[in-house]
Design a protein around this nucleic acid. Structure first.
Length: 460
RNA sequence: UCCCCAGUAGCUCAGUAGGUAGAGCAAGUGGCUGUUAACCACUUUGUCCGCGGUUCGAGUCCGUGCUGGGGAGCCA
């Protein structure tokens, strides 16, 4: 007898004999002459109801089944006599595969997200977290589909990197030196004795690699884990997270923004279509305004606003900000919040920032003061995408590096790309977890990644 | 790293002006029932986060540490 997953059984149009269901008991109720068992196998949000008649040979054992136990049921799929479900299974045989003692931490009631974080190894067995991780999986698939349909190639950029100059923030050092007795030199680790013969770290971005491949394969993207050793303690930051980084040659900032906007819309509509049931859970129990918000994002164009105009809007807003706004500052969370949640009430793409607050690789505009940068800000999350048109002119790039005190020697291969057949190109990074937060309405990044890594927390 | 808040039964929480601890759910027993977060009755459960202090007496006040949450910064 072949096992059939519950999502298929519940979609059945006809009764079926001889079906086999494997899963975990969510709850059990006794009635006169039989027991109702609700089983979930992770294939969908819904459980299937099993009717276990008291004449089953192991009925005593069945009555002791507790929430969390693994079971294997064979029987027939029949129309339900009760309300609340269209199909149920009349069990011919029930095998207890793995009993869960009463110490099983998940009860058939709501638990707080904080508590569930302390049992991150068991939380995917709840409705909400099962739904989050099915959606996460579906989104990953959709990302590949989106890019593949548009002729992009998927690049596996390295996780271990020797460029300590990837730009974005503190990095995790990788070493095979004996920590208790390391090779030392000049009062520090002797990196020349280390595995790679130099200091290496976990990547903070695949961008530099992606640029090289964009200048060969045209349109490429990376989708992989990223590591930041920042001591960030917020609901939006994790030390290990996933990022999607497309990079396109012969593409300017405006086309870059188009792609970012198109990608976000595509992913939302994909999930609304393919994960309807799971999404309803979030709309009903996590954020009552979720569907409205997502439909609004689908139906209206994102605002495109030059940094200078954003500053003007903020200055004339009559809102007293903790951080006063002047041209040249990096916008604070409260400013971004005001723009997306109060002023425009929709996603905003800010672009053309002052060069002084952006990295060296962003393309210098004709005004010599701003760079072709763009950030996509969404209500509730803040920055979800950060990108730019890259500086493709060797002399300008070298001058910018000089201004910022970066050594050309460390970037020799990066600069080579501008030396040999350089071409305009653009790209961005999108935080995968932040995207999931936006789509599910979940407000803490620790609840959309299987085993979150944050400062001082790596228990699982 | 900084600011604010919280930490009471397995879980969610209440605990009034400091007088020595309670509810719901879970678990156990019995009953009822094509039930569906089933229902009804009864029963069990606590170093009130740790340490120190004030007090005749501290879950309640003070100090300190730890843990968790929210906000800020850094950013995706």
């Amino acid at each position: 007898m072949n096992r059939i997953k519950i999502n298929r059984l519940l979609r059945s149009k006809i009764p079926m004999n001889q079906v086999l269901v494997n899963g975990w008991v969510r709850t059990r109720r006794d009635s006169k002459g039989f027991s109702f068992i609700e089983v979930n196998d992770g294939s969908c949000l819904k459980n299937i109801q099993i009717i276990a008649a008291s004449n089953l040979p192991n009925y005593d054992e069945i009555q002791r089944l507790t929430t969390g136990s693994a079971v294997s049921i064979s029987g027939s799929l029949v129309p339900s006599q009760g309300k609340g479900q269209s199909w149920e299974i009349t069990a011919a045989r029930i095998l207890v595969i793995g009993q869960a003692p009463e110490t099983f931490p998940l009860q058939k009631k709501r638990h707080s997200d904080e508590y569930l974080r302390t049992i991150a190894h068991l939380r995917p067995r709840t409705n909400k977290y099962g739904a989050v991780f099915r959606i996460r999986s579906e989104l990953s698939y959709a990302i590949h589909t989106f890019f593949r349909d548009r002729g992009f190639r998927y690049i596996h950029s390295p996780i271990i990197t020797g460029s300590d100059c990837e730009g974005a923030g503190e990095m995790f050092r990788v070493t095979t030196l004996d920590i208790k007795n390391p090779a030392l030199k000049d009062r520090g680790l002797d990196a020349s004795q280390d595995f790679f013969g130099k200091e290496v770290s976990l990547t903070v971005s695949g961008q530099l690699s992606a640029e090289m491949f964009a200048l060969a394969l045209g349109d490429v993207y990376t989708f992989g884990p990223t590591f930041r050793a920042e001591n960030s303690n917020t609901r939006r930051h994790a030390a290990e997270f996933w990022m999607i980084e497309p990079e396109m040659t012969f593409c300017d900032l405006s086309e870059n923004m188009n792609l970012g906007e198109e990608l976000i819309r595509y992913l939302i509509s994909h999930v609304l279509r393919e994960c309807r049931e799971d999404m309803e859970l979030f709309g009903n129990f996590v954020d009552k305004t979720l569907m409205e918000t997502l439909n609004h994002i689908l139906s209206s164009d994102f605002v495109r606003l030059p940094y200078a105009e954003a500053v003007e809007i903020l200055k004339t807003s009559k809102v007293s900000f903790d951080y006063p706004v002047t041209y040249g500052i990096d916008l604070q969370s409260e400013h971004e919040k005001y723009l997306t949640e109060t002023h425009f009430k929709k996603p905003v793409i800010l672009h053309d920032y002052p060069k002084t607050i952006k990295p060296f690789y962003m393309r210098l505009n004709a005004d010599q003061q701003t760079v072709a940068a763009m950030d996509i800000l969404v209500p509730g999350i803040g920055e979800i995408v950060g990108g730019s048109q890259r500086e493709e002119r060797l002399n300008v790039l070298e001058a910018r590096m000089g201004e910022m005190g970066l050594l050309k020697e460390n970037y020799w291969w990066y600069l080579d790309s501008r030396r040999y057949g350089s071409a305009p190109h653009s790209g961005f990074g999108m935080g995968f977890e932040r995207l999931i937060m936006m789509i599910t309405g979940i407000t803490n990044i620790r609840d959309v990644i299987p085993f979150p890594r944050t400062p001082g927390n790596i228990d699982f």
